[in-house]
Simulated scan of single mutants.
Amino acid sequence: MTAQQPPHEPTDLADRALVEEAAKKSGLLWVRGPEGPSRALWHVWHEGAVCLVGDGPQEQPLDGLGLTDGGAATVTARSKDKGGRLVAWPVRVVELTPGGERWTAAVDELKGKRLNAPDADTIADRWARECRVLRLETAGAPGERPGAMPDASHAAAPRPTAATTRRPAPAGLPRLLFRRKGRTPR
Rank of each mutant, 00 (worst) to 15 (best):
G99S: 07
A77T: 10
P34M: 10
A128S: 15
H8A: 15
E20F: 05
A156Q: 13
V93T: 08
D63E: 10
A162V: 07
G83Y: 03
R78N: 13
K24M: 13
R126H: 14
W42F: 07
G182Q: 11
L176H: 08
P61T: 14
L65C: 04
D151Q: 13
E137A: 15
R78C: 09
D151K: 14
D151L: 14
A171L: 13
I123Y: 00
L13W: 01
H46V: 06
A139V: 02
S79N: 14
F178P: 00
P174H: 01
K80I: 07
A106Q: 01
V31N: 08
E109G: 01
G83N: 08
A124S: 13
P57T: 13
L52H: 06
G172S: 12
G140Q: 10
S26T: 07
G71S: 10
V107D: 01
R166V: 11
V133S: 03
D63F: 10
P98H: 10
P142W: 09
L29F: 03
A156T: 14
P168W: 11
A155R: 12
A128M: 06
G36H: 07
T138D: 00
L110G: 02
V93Q: 05
A152K: 12
P118F: 05
E101K: 13
K25F: 01
G84H: 07
A141T: 12
L134P: 05
L67W: 11
G64K: 07
D81W: 07
R159D: 12
R129Q: 11
L173M: 12
R166E: 10
H43R: 04
H43M: 10
D125F: 04
T184C: 02
A105H: 01
R175P: 00
P90T: 04
N116E: 11
P98M: 06
C131I: 03
A17R: 15
C51E: 08
V53L: 11
G182V: 05
A117V: 03
G172L: 13
S38M: 12
L13G: 03
T74P: 00
R85E: 10
A148K: 02
P90Q: 06
A22V: 06
A169H: 05
E130Y: 14
P142E: 08
P160D: 11
G99D: 09
A162C: 00
D12R: 10
T11V: 01
A72M: 07
A157Y: 04
T104F: 00
D151W: 04
V44W: 04
L18R: 14
C131Y: 04
L18T: 05
K24P: 00
E35L: 14
V87N: 08
P150T: 12
T11Q: 11
A106K: 00
A73D: 08
T122Q: 09
P34N: 12
L96Y: 06
P61V: 03
A105Y: 02
G84V: 08
C51H: 13
A162G: 15
R179C: 00
P57Q: 11
D12T: 13
L173W: 09
A106E: 02
A23Q: 07
E130V: 04
D108R: 11
P146H: 05
A155F: 06
A105T: 01
T104S: 15
G83T: 08
L86P: 02
A171W: 11
E130M: 05
S79I: 01
A23F: 07
G54P: 08
G182Y: 02
V19K: 04
